[in-house]
Design a protein around this nucleic acid. Structure first.
Lengths: 351, 351
DNA sequence: TTGAAAGCGCTACCAC
DNA sequence: GTGGTAGCGCTTTCAA
């Protein structure tokens, strides 16, 4: 910068002012400086800038994996949204494993970020808190830590209940909640109740909170209909392979099942494949639903009925909460629930 | 760091040595320092570290979009691979538009990276070169800039030719090259020939080099079989929606087509949907193939025959070339072609 | 094995 | 409108 300043016959301070777009520079000077910058190909040193300003302009986004329909969608939109604020996004893959999470987001990495978005991370609140320190954090999709962090939640329970009711309305009575636990480890908590301290088993592999909340919705909807029953078949990961494997297991346990409520679209797409292999026709023999409304849901054969969790709202609120907290660390934590819509497609339309 | 040093009764230099794991510290001192670090929750300031070391530890990855089957897979693997080298990855979404690319990767952002991986970026060589400056760059998937940058290439032409031959072997004679241009804008270049300077039209929206190379393979394979013919139907983006739209258009143009060679799996999956809508059975009436061998290809109904471009090799070579160049900027640019395998699935198996 | 000195490149603050 | 000064927090170098 000093070199540029000398070449332009000004001080480095003026160069800084020009490059930062500050308005206290004469048009004449500005032109001269920019000309030299152009000619020399000079670029500000981001590290020095970060050091001096105390901000890096980088946001960490922790997801189980980028290579998944849902998280790819989320990452893509969040990157675009935050780019419009001049923020870059580093993607941390936690690998969905309890152990991997702490390791993936070591304290040393976190210190490089101006903020952190944690999606579907099953860490216990204290670990996240100690990890984050003073860092702005927005938690996505789960409902834990509600009181401590800003939080954007999907309508997990209500959405799952709604899509389950759709299956029941279509006549399904022997359901399988694919990817969702059978019991209700949340107790009889209402969805608004988040006092679950002491219940967590650190290090244990369990379905995520999101899946348990969706399970809750399924069970509630089924309980409303006499004669209907549902069996849970929990998954630790959401993947096509897991969906296919679980669907095979479901068929083995109950060959007469007539509806599959899947915890995610990825699981549902895997399940569609396994059902085809088993010679079951969808929706003729079995109805199938997903959750997330990823792009693929509209393109499978048959296309997949799904719960659309309001991606736009989720991304917009996440950005808003993050920016708000970056501006004011003392603000009281806020919690937002995104609205959902059930999108019906071929997989639940009995001819 | 000075505070920690004082509390531990040493100099800040010793704290630095302990935290960096340098071996010139006595066990006793190390313990004492670590105890204070633990107790105070101190974390090194990454910005200062970067400024002093001259490295940020961040790699930029420019892809058209993360939310795509192929780029999600690539990003995921590359993030994991580079994490094992202590490098973080910032994802830059170029949006696949010619204009977006320059804007997305502005020079100021690039200076924050220790290296850059450019995937499927259609910028012309000079723009990339001027953008990159002295930065280590690895170009992926395209074949342009071969001489100027390190470069990892898929077997685009050979892979497309192989999968086309498979369709021809199965008896297809009226093919559509879905997503690929009709003409051969590469001229009669052989794939090894990369002298194409002067041919580019900056600012124009055109199929990527990868798609044009795949088109070349398709046309070559078809030319080998008398009576066979193929029509190109170019795409500017690879997406499910584009695949469905193009397949509809293909059917409108030639209702008797019997084979669809698609430029990517995403296009192929969209095409499968459109074929189902049109009442065409795959593989009974029409055979379909993709390219990329993403996870979904094995789970569609029918499952999708595809060209597997050797993801492992691509990621590993990308990491190798990048690290090599970071260590030695003067090394001569290297070019690597990843081997391919055609994975046959239901979509091309005539009963 | 430890530490003092020097400075990486930038910008907030204030004086002119 | 412009620029001097004074660090931001760390690590490389070299001396003790």
């Amino acid at each position: 910068m000093r070199d540029v300043a000398e070449a332009a016959g000004v001080s480095s301070m003026t160069v800084s002012n020009v490059l930062a777009g500050r308005s206290n520079v004469s048009e004449e000077t500005r032109r001269r400086v920019l000309e030299v910058v152009e000619r020399t190909g000079y670029r500000v040193n981001t590290a020095a800038q970060s050091l001096r300003r105390g901000r890096t302009g980088i946001i960490g986004l922790a997801v189980p994996e980028v290579d998944s329909h849902y998280f790819g969608l989320l990452a893509s939109r969040l990157i675009t949204r935050l780019a419009s604020e001049g923020l870059r996004v580093v993607v941390e893959q936690t690998g969905a494993s309890r152990e991997g999470e702490l390791a993936a987001i070591t304290t040393s990495r976190v210190s490089a970020y101006d903020g952190l978005v944690l999606s579907a991370v099953g860490l216990d609140p204290d670990a996240v808190a100690s990890l984050a320190g003073d860092l702005p954090v927005v938690v996505l999709g789960e409902r834990q830590d509600v009181r401590r962090f800003d939080h954007v939640e999907m309508a997990n329970t209500a959405g799952a209940a709604a899509v389950t009711r759709l299956l029941l309305d279509r006549g399904c009575r022997r359901l399988v909640a694919l990817g969702m636990p059978d019991a209700e480890p949340l107790g009889d908590d209402d969805e608004d109740d988040d006092d679950r301290s002491g219940e967590r088993t650190p290090g244990a592999q369990r379905p995520s909170d999101a899946f348990r909340l969706r399970a809750l919705g399924v069970h509630r909807a089924v309980a409303e209909v006499p004669g209907a029953r549902v069996t849970g078949l929990p998954a630790l990961r959401s993947s096509l392979a897991a969906g296919a494997a679980l669907a095979r297991e479901a068929l083995a346990r109950d060959p007469d099942l007539d509806g599959l409520v899947c915890a995610t679209d990825a699981l549902a797409i895997g399940a569609l494949r396994a059902l085809a292999d088993a010679g079951r026709r969808v929706p003729h023999d079995v109805l199938v639903t997903g959750f997330d409304d990823v792009e693929d849901a509209a393109y499978t054969v048959p296309s997949l009925t799904s719960v659309s969790p309001g991606h736009d709202v989720i991304v917009e609120e996440t950005a808003r909460l993050l920016l708000r907290r970056m501006a004011d660390r003392g603000a009281p934590p806020e919690s937002v629930v995104s609205p959902f819509v059930v999108v019906e497609r071929e997989s639940t339309q009995r001819s």
